[in-house]
Design a protein around this nucleic acid. Structure first.
Length: 691
DNA sequence: GAAATCATACTTTTT
DNA sequence: GTATGATTTC
């Protein structure tokens, strides 16, 4: 999955990104409304595409149509939400046009395209083109690092803003262009007292980033936008593109709208596609205003797509009712072109493990009915909601891949390796140095900071920053880095990884538990690196397109197997499945109790639920467990009572078929300990009798 | 003075 | 399972 969609698209087919049509769109006719969107010429265009209305199909057809009417692929920029979507779009457009356009169209996420623009034209604004891209956790780490440096000795020991929170605050400021003080007041009131320290930290962070030739996610957009605001930049990165197509426009932010503004000013015609009812990235400073204001801001033609080709009328009826509860929305009712089918099922489950069993039962029923696992999907609000289910699936030998919620790149040993590689690639990267140096026995934060400041390990050893007993170890590290960096040797990324691992592996084994599994992770990284042309590309691809599923790094083999998909709702955006199982439809899960404090947040949670429901083509099962384990709550280790999701109000439930799994609600069972079904309890009692 | 170790609290969603 | 703060050890 790391192959760059821009330059080297893969042939791998993601589980499902069909959006309205299971077959190739070229084989089907377009509806009149779709055709209108495809044929539009002249000015900017907004396609308001409700769920399942064939948005992707239309976008592909428009892309193909533009090329057919003489637009060179090089003049087209295609901005998508995920790299997976970009790869898939281009692949299908290629099929539709019969031309080899994959290497010619500029297709990718905003961030991936920004990377390409910055590598090429960053020097126009004084950016070293060999910069390193850092991810959100690096941003947080770097913020913590510079804050510690700023902190006066003997300062009070009050609890300070968490580093991840600092990163969120900073990101919101950058992406919304709203002043820090206002952002604190509106979104982070509990950090208000930290205003001064935050201001100073953000300034120091900025200086540090620039000095180290390091670029974070928000910089990618910010600097791209800045380049487009120079005459030279516009000439190189703007004017050459006569058409810019943007997918999922409802989930873009103010900065991204600015970029489109600049592209339009440079002469590009913008086509935006999106659905305000599916805006689910407000937490990342995306704003629905972008899509609502698009027609006025760009003086654009609006073409709505209202015919749903995906779901049965019953599923759509339920989803429409859920959407109707959103406070600020555009009135819009989707009409199904699929005809009638089964009613969505609402399964009230006694508890989490009953829920897991109920899901497995239905999965297998559908499988016997001829619907393969790959045509089914389990959707969750947060990654750990599927923990219990995953155990049950494993126990029943049902294979699955999980999308989203994966923290592979955040595992300590993985970060160790990546930082080591970053040091090889960019000697200025002091955050990477800081981490790498602490892998040396006898070097902690204090020494690491001083040595990182020098950004030169040999010099640090000479100056005695490293304690005597660690000198040999440090010399070995310096040698390994030099060897991997040696340009004359012209090593491949995999070979470079092998070189640094000669030093790193023994330390990973010594330092961490479950060391063989961790070494295995490093092996898999090594293998994926084999596909990258350079270390820089490997590192950049990894941060811009982190492994999204458990299968992404697993290597070949699973491609042809019939595998179930488990996904967070966020990661399922744009996907569709014949059968969809939405689990944990309980208050506190959906909506998440982390996001239930304001109307806006609740509306976003409701849209999230709507997105989940509208992924289903034929069968929709919604599960509401009445008890579940609060893994991470203050009621630690207690089984809490759950209430069915507030989005499942009486009117919505009336459109569904209600069933019960496990012990009916209201029967009092032991709250603690393993919950058993009555039959099992009887059997257990018998077994006791048997002795 | 700095590093290693222990104890405690916290854990949404993602480019 | 991991990040942070306090405590002990080097």
């Amino acid at each position: 999955m790391f192959a760059n969609a821009i330059d080297a698209p893969t042939d791998s087919v993601p589980p499902s990104l069909d959006d309205g049509f299971a077959d190739d769109p070229a084989d089907r006719g377009l509806t009149p409304e779709q055709q209108a969107a495809v044929d539009h010429r002249g000015g900017h265009l907004l396609i308001v595409a409700g769920a399942g209305t064939g948005k992707t199909t239309t976008l592909i057809a428009r892309l193909a149509s533009l090329i057919a009417s003489g637009v060179a692929p090089e003049q087209i920029m295609l901005l998508t939400f995920s790299r997976r979507a970009a790869t898939e779009l281009v692949r299908r457009a290629e099929h539709a046009t019969g031309e080899s356009i994959a290497r010619r169209v500029w297709a990718g996420t905003f961030h991936a395209i920004a990377n390409r623009v910055l590598r090429r034209s960053g020097s126009l604004i004084g950016l070293d083109p060999s910069f390193t891209v850092i991810d959100a956790t690096d941003t947080a780490d770097l913020l913590a690092l510079v804050r510690d440096e700023l902190r006066a000795p003997g300062a009070d020991n009050r609890r300070r803003t968490r580093k991840e929170t600092m990163a969120s605050i900073l990101s919101r400021v950058v992406n919304t262009k709203v002043p820090l003080e206002t952002v604190l007041d509106t979104h982070f009131p509990w950090c208000r007292d930290d205003l001064d320290e935050l201001r100073a930290t953000f300034r120091a962070y900025l200086d540090r980033k620039r000095a180290d030739h390091v670029v974070d996610y928000d910089d990618m957009l910010l600097l791209w936008s800045a380049i487009l605001r120079t005459d030279a930049g516009r000439a190189v990165a703007g004017t050459p593109f006569t058409h810019v197509l943007v997918d999922e426009y409802q989930d873009t932010n103010a900065l991204q709208a600015d970029i489109l503004d600049a592209m339009a000013a440079a002469g590009s015609t913008i086509t935006a596609v999106g659905d305000d009812a599916q805006a689910i990235y407000g937490f990342r400073a995306a704003t629905v205003r972008n899509i609502l204001d698009f027609p006025a801001r760009f003086d654009a033609t609006v073409v709505p797509l209202t015919i749903n080709h995906r779901s049965t009328a019953e599923i759509l009826a339920t989803a429409n009712l859920v959407a109707a509860g959103t406070h600020e929305r555009h009135e819009k009712v989707l009409v199904s072109a699929r005809g009638t089918g089964r009613h969505p099922e609402l399964i009230t489950c006694h508890d989490e493990s009953t829920q897991a069993d109920a899901v497995c039962d239905r999965l297998l029923e559908h499988l016997e009915g001829g619907i393969e696992l790959r045509r089914q999907c389990v959707l969750v609000r947060t990654g750990y909601h599927s923990d219990v289910l995953e155990l049950a699936l494993t126990a029943r030998n049902i294979p699955f891949v999980k999308y989203g919620g994966l923290r592979f790149l955040e595992a300590a040993h993985v970060k160790d390796l990546l930082c080591l590689l970053r040091v090889v690639e960019n000697p200025n990267d002091r955050l990477a140095w800081f981490r790498v140096l602490q892998c040396i026995d006898g070097v902690g934060p204090a020494r690491a900071r001083r040595a990182a400041e020098l950004a030169d390990l040999t010099k640090a050893i000479e100056l005695g920053v490293v304690p005597k007993r660690a000198t040999n170890d440090a010399l070995l590290l310096a040698e390994v880095i030099d060897t991997a960096r040696d340009e004359h040797a012209a090593r491949t990324p995999s070979e470079q990884i092998d070189v640094v691992r000669r030093w790193l592996d023994p330390r990973v084994r010594a330092r961490y538990a479950a060391d063989e599994a961790r070494i295995g992770d490093l092996d898999r990284l090594r293998d994926t690196a084999a596909a990258s042309p350079s270390l820089e590309r490997f590192l950049t691809d990894l941060t811009l397109d982190p492994p999204a599923s458990t299968g992404d790094l697993a290597g070949p083999g699973s491609k042809d197997d019939d595998v179930l998909t488990i996904s967070t709702i966020h990661s399922a955006k744009g996907g569709e499945w014949d059968v969809v199982h939405v689990i944990h439809a309980a208050d506190g899960c959906i909506p998440s109790d982390m996001a239930a404090s304001s109307t806006d947040e609740l509306d976003e949670e409701r849209r999230l639920f709507y997105v989940a429901l509208t992924r289903a083509r034929d069968h929709l099962h919604v599960y509401a467990p009445l008890r579940y384990h609060h893994h991470r709550s203050r009621l630690d280790d207690a089984h809490g009572m759950a209430v069915r999701s507030r989005f499942l109000d009486a009117a919505v439930v009336a459109t569904m078929e209600e069933t019960v799994a496990g012990t009916p609600a209201g029967v009092d069972l032991p709250v603690e300990g393993p919950v058993v079904t009555p039959l099992r309890a009887i059997d257990d009692a018998l077994r006791d009798l048997f002795g």
